[in-house]
Design a protein around this nucleic acid. Sequence first.
DNA 1: GCAGGATTTGACCGATCGGTCAAGTAGGGT
DNA 2: ACCCTACTTGACCGATCGGTCAAATCCTGC
Lengths: 216, 216
Amino acid sequence: MPPESSPTHPVVAPHAESRQHPVTRPSTGDELRATALAQFASIGFAGTSLQQIADAAGYSKSSVLYHFASKEALLGEVLTPAIDRLEVILGRFVAAPDGTASRRRFVDDFIDFLLEFRLELHTFINQAQSLRGIPVIDRAGLLIVRLSDTLCHEGASTEDRIRFGIALGGAAYTLVAGMTFLNKDIAPADEIRQALSVVITELLAPVAVHTSESRK
Amino acid sequence: MPPESSPTHPVVAPHAESRQHPVTRPSTGDELRATALAQFASIGFAGTSLQQIADAAGYSKSSVLYHFASKEALLGEVLTPAIDRLEVILGRFVAAPDGTASRRRFVDDFIDFLLEFRLELHTFINQAQSLRGIPVIDRAGLLIVRLSDTLCHEGASTEDRIRFGIALGGAAYTLVAGMTFLNKDIAPADEIRQALSVVITELLAPVAVHTSESRK
DNA sequence: GCAGGATTTGACCGATCGGTCAAGTAGGGT
DNA sequence: ACCCTACTTGACCGATCGGTCAAATCCTGC
């Protein structure tokens, strides 16, 4: 029976260290997940073969299928943490009272999400339509729609929707594809974070104004 | 020998009508190009098989390979018109004197380009990294870099680069993927155009200000 | 009607696809 | 020593991959 996924059980190192320092080396499953994610994001799910993933990670194809029931299951395990995180962010946002401060914190949360799960977002964003029917994809799709509806309310203008779409798709592209051939990783990291914050706020702020802080 | 590509020669209908009215039905090559483009954009080049393209277009796989030398050649013919158009737009922009009016016309040209070649742009934008080495892809990559450099000048800030990336990737995403599951094609078409114009100008205007119209 | 190029197609090729299976190795508890 | 579990792997399966080729079929000028 494959090692069950849910929490990657540490087994050793009683003094819990979360990051993969040489003390707690990443498990085989983690290596495979990371390798698969990189391939899914750049070549696409349909275009990535289990053999490629296995070769890139230094295992055999059979080992990949030992750790994950199928290629789709592997995709599910790869994307789930990102979707969980996005769900938390959205939940926190709808729970808080409408207001500028709440909006601002949401944007901050969202940018943290973008930076941490850029590959997962890029994978989902650009392939959701062709992967419809896979549970994890459908779940993510519903989340995105909920997010859009929450940010734009019901009577949102076309411009508001387009602002949200450009922020979402633009960030996903810039942080993954654009990063590696527009600016050759010339990125002081926190400089990127700050620039991203300015632009995303600029894109999503008008939406906030329309819906809750319109005429003060 | 396959029918040569360059200009789709009409053969009939001396009174030239460019659009595919029932009078001049689209040629087999055009049908295949359109079908392939749709598949490349949604499933990805690597994930699309010649069989799928043939089936979707109502031909056999052999027919596809009769009209196009290979899968890569098909990709090339599909993307080339868009790249040609982009090249013209960029050329016109660098030829004109730096100024706000020139910038504004460039944004208009660019939005026309986005709307007309949305599938081509989406295909290239999200798969350029994994398709490096294919001539048409490398050519498009160079164009994008030139475009970025022209818009941002040399000493452009990280924020400027990110603005350009978000505008480019965001528009490509919104017009293709976002369109079909965020807003169920509720799009009065010119309403989309206008909203797009506002948001793209907003994203690229600061770049213009920095480089040429900074301190008036 | 007929010749001849343009087009379409099915049969076929070696390679690779996702996935199954059984044989094997490694190591810890007893 | 023993066994049991976790893990890894190569051989193998039917299906499909991109691509070749030679027979059909279609269409047009004569």
